[in-house]
Every structure is written in structure tokens, then in C-alpha cells.
Nucleic acid binder design. Structure first.
Length: 416
RNA sequence: GCGACUGUAGCUCAGUUGGUUAGAGCGCCGGUUUGUGGUACCGGAGGUCGCGGGUUCGAACCCCGUCAGUCGCCCCA
């Protein structure tokens, strides 16, 4: 007999079950509710796109495109990629589907994303995000609205404690480029004293030195040129309006001049809500303004801003707080203590459910142990069924108030 | 791609310096007890000790390799 080897799950995928699954659903439900309060319109997007959608938008420069996307050729020989983010696909749809007519357009979505990375805490190859974007709005009020929405979401999820909104500006294109050049010149002077990783970054992605975790880099980061010294008048004013809007809306924020984005299309506002409770993967929600993206996809210049947040990470925090997301006990558990009254179990459960009560039925295993099983499940009410001389006997155990609810739900049921 | 740690029953884990037939709790199945009842007891099923090689009279245990998981680094759209 040859043994059948059970296929293992793919690295970095997860089968979400039990309290984890409830917390996950809770996060999505909360997001759906809040996004409606801010009048963001729901969209559904394809899970895969032509590879160019992502490679063009990401610029083909970094490891990101070459090593960290799930790409494959379809039967026609065309390279396709499982979406590693929402933004590029939404930008593509904005262009190809004529959504310009709705600008400024506020949209929201959620679903799975795929990145070919080594899994670690709160980081998977298939993961899930909620996402919100405002496309075609150049005003700082769009940034503010997104941030206020994010803040409200985290508060309604009950996880805002220990979470800080880190805020920065990258300036407009010219500011950003001037700052970048100054940073390179500065770090070149200290090249030999930087960590090995940062010496690498100096060539490939100098802005990233600013958020290096290596203590050797810290003194140089502290004295590095600040974006503020390179901001144009317009960029400075834009950022001031964003912070003023946050203050007006009562959203706490913290300036973090080391918060950067590696990709060139980011302009002005960049932000991350960061928690101190998730180890190395502390960013819980992040985003920024990407005014340069639409052009890289061949569209007309279109200002846009958005954010995304990992559902798994939010769900972990929700559970850590011991609230929202637990599996709720049943309203009623119907216990068929003798198989002779099985059909009344089926019938009573159906009637109770039609009356809007959540019901589980226990009708298997040792009859004598069925009641104890029900007790252990901790329902609000237990309805035990047994055969009697005058037909099925039913006994209800519940608090008096809830017993009345169950009784009225059962009213009119014809026991066999 | 790199590093550290961990792989024993469905789950959580013991397992002595390398020594007979690998254990417990929980869960599951059956039975006895109780009988408006969350009790107690008895029994049962369930294990390629991640996999492959090596050392040894003898390996869950020591060595090498490999695979998987966890966490961290790199990267982070």
C-alpha cells in the first residue's frame, strides 16, 4: 500500500479559524461601517493584473518587483501577477474604466494580497488588507479626511491605545529631489561609519537609511538633513493645512521626519499608525499621497492619496484587548436526549432559528452525555427533549427573562 | 537570501547519562454512577518520536544532512 502524502499548505498562507476568524470578520465589519460614515464607495477589484500594472507603478528598480511578486505566465504567454497591493490596480481601473468622470472619487475595498516574502509575525505571503483611496483630489482636506477616518476606525476597533499616528511630508517633486541629494551627500561623508546595510542603501535607496534599525546609524540619522529645510513654499503650506485639519478634527499626531517612502511617485503626506505591541511589524495602517502614480501608468496627471491596513495585524490587536471578535455562545442549544425524538429536535431548532435565535443542536454521541455537552458550551438556554407518555417532553433551562423569549419563539410548535 | 530557536497522540506538552513494550492532561468514542443534572469513576481508539543517513550491542535522546514551523535580519509597494 502506498501512502498518500497529504499536500502541505503553501508557505506563508494561513487557515484562519475560531477566535482568529471572528476577529478578522470583526475588523472587516467595522471597516465597512466606518467607510460608509465617510461616504467611501465600495469597489471590487481583480486579484490579478498584467504584471506591467505593478512593475510600471513600482518603477522596476528595487528587489520588490524582481523578487517579491507572485508572477507567472498565462497560456498565452502573458506575464500576470497576483496583486501585491491595491493602489496600482485601482489606478489602472481609474484610467481604463473612465472613472475620471467621478473625480474626486472616494473608494474602499478589502481582500487578499500576495507578496513573495519570508513569513514572520504579522507578515504572510497571502495576507489581507482594508484599503481606502481618494483619487482626483489635490486638496489637503482629502488627506485629512482619510486620516480622520483611519483614526476613527482604530478607535472603534478599540485598539487606539499604544498606537501613534506618525506623520511626515516628502514635499513636492522638487523638494523631494533636493532633500534626497542632500541626504546622499551627507551620508557619503560618513560612509565608513555606517552599518553595512546602510552602506548598501546609500547606493540603492538612501532614504531608507533614515529608518535603519542599526544603532550604529542612529547618531548620523539624528543629524541628517531634514526635509523641512528643502520644502517649497507650496509644500510647506500643504503640510500645514494637513496638520491644521487633524488638529481641528481632534486627531492626535506626531511628526516623524524619518518616515519615508522608497518610491518616487509619493509626494507630500506620508503617514503610519504604529503600535508598540506587535514586535518588529509595528505598522498597523499606512499610506500617503501618490500624485505621481497615475502618469507612470500612462494616465493624465491625477493627484491621489490613500492608505491600507493589514487585517491580520488589526485582528491580533483586537484579540489582545480581549474584546470584539470572540465566538458568541448560542442563544439556544437543543439537546436530543433520545433519538426517538430526533424529528422534534430538528423541527424545534428550525422554528427557533426562523424566530431569529442562534441555535445549535446536540443529537449525537452517548445520549446520557449530550446534556453535559450542552452545558459546557455555555448557551443562554438549553432545551432538552425526551420521549414521554403524552408525546415529546421538552424542558427549558434558562434565566427567566430569556426563557420567556424562547417560549414565545416556540409558541405554536406542534410536538410529535 | 541570512541568522537563532523549535519539531513526540487531534491539541498542549513530559520523556532521566543513550537502556525492556514511548507517557500525562485535554479532546474524542463506549460504559458505570448521578438524575433537573457543568459530578466522579472505568475502559477504548489514536504515535513512520518531521524525514534521510551516521555512531552504537542498543537512538525520541548523540552527530551530519534535509524539510517544516516560529521569531528576527534584509526588504517593505
Amino acid at each position: 500500500m502506498s501512502r498518500i502524502e497529504t499536500p502541505r499548505p503553501i508557505r506563508g498562507t494561513q487557515d484562519i479559524f475560531g477566535p482568529d476568524a471572528e476577529a478578522f470578520a470583526h475588523v472587516v465589519e467595522c471597516f465597512e461601517r466606518v467607510r460608509k460614515l465617510y461616504r467611501f464607495r465600495r469597489i471590487e477589484m481583480p486579484v490579478f493584473e498584467k504584471t506591467e500594472v505593478f512593475s510600471r507603478s513600482l518603477g522596476e528598480t528595487t528587489d520588490v518587483v524582481s523578487k517579491e511578486m507572485y508572477s507567472f505566465d498565462d497560456r498565452g504567454g502573458e506575464s500576470l501577477t497576483l496583486r501585491p497591493e491595491f493602489t496600482a490596480g485601482i489606478a489602472r481601473a481609474f484610467i481604463t474604466d473612465g472613472w475620471q468622470q467621478y473625480a474626486p472619487l472616494k473608494v474602499a475595498t478589502h481582500g487578499p494580497l500576495f507578496r513573495y516574502e519570508r513569513p514572520q509575525k504579522g507578515r504572510y505571503r497571502q495576507f489581507h488588507q482594508i484599503d481606502a483611496e481618494v483619487i482626483g483630489a489635490a486638496e489637503p482636506q482629502a488627506d485629512v479626511e482619510l486620516l480622520v477616518m483611519a483614526d476613527q476606525l482604530l478607535k472603534e476597533l478599540g485598539i487606539a491605545d499604544g498606537v501613534t499616528l506618525n506623520l511626515n511630508t516628502l514635499g513636492d517633486g522638487a523638494s523631494r529631489e533636493a532633500w534626497r541629494s542632500a541626504l546622499i551627500a551627507y551620508f557619503r561623508q560618513h560612509h565608513g561609519d555606517l552599518s553595512e546595510e546602510s552602506q548598501e542603501r546609500l547606493e540603492k535607496n538612501p532614504l531608507r537609511i533614515l529608518d535603519s534599525k542599526d544603532p550604529r546609524d542612529r547618531p548620523f540619522v539624528a543629524d541628517a538633513p531634514q526635509i523641512d529645510d528643502f520644502l517649497s513654499e507650496e509644500a510647506r503650506d500643504f503640510f500645514a493645512q494637513v496638520t491644521a485639519g487633524l488638529d481641528a478634527a481632534g486627531v492626535a499626531w506626531s511628526r516623524n521626519p524619518a518616515l519615508v517612502r522608497g518610491l518616487d511617485y509619493y509626494r507630500h503626506t506620508a503617514f503610519e499608525f504604529i503600535t508598540d505591541r506587535l514586535g518588529a511589524q509595528g505598522t498597523v495602517l499606512g499610506g500617503g499621497r501618490y500624485d505621481g502614480l497615475m502618469e507612470s501608468l500612462g494616465g493624465a496627471p491625477t493627484p491621489a492619496v490613500g492608505w491600507a491596513a493589514g487585517i491580520e495585524r488589526l485582528a491580533m490587536l483586537v484579540q489582545g484587548d480581549g474584546q470584539g471578535g470572540g465566538e458568541l455562545p448560542a442563544d439556544v442549544i437543543v439537546v436530543v436526549e433520545n433519538d426517538a425524538v430526533m424529528l422534534d429536535g430538528v423541527g424545534a431548532a428550525a422554528q427557533l432559528r426562523r424566530a431569529g435565535l442562534s441555535v445549535d443542536m446536540i443529537a449525537s454521541g452517548s445520549p446520557r452525555k449530550r446534556f453535559d455537552k450542552a452545558v459546557k458550551l455555555g448557551a443562554k438556554a438549553i432545551l432538552a427533549l425526551n420521549p414521554g407518555d403524552a408525546g415529546t417532553q421538552h424542558r427549558l433551562r434558562a434565566e427567566p427573562d430569556f426563557a420567556a423569549v424562547v417560549d414565545s419563539a416556540l409558541a405554536g410548535y406542534r410536538w410529535q
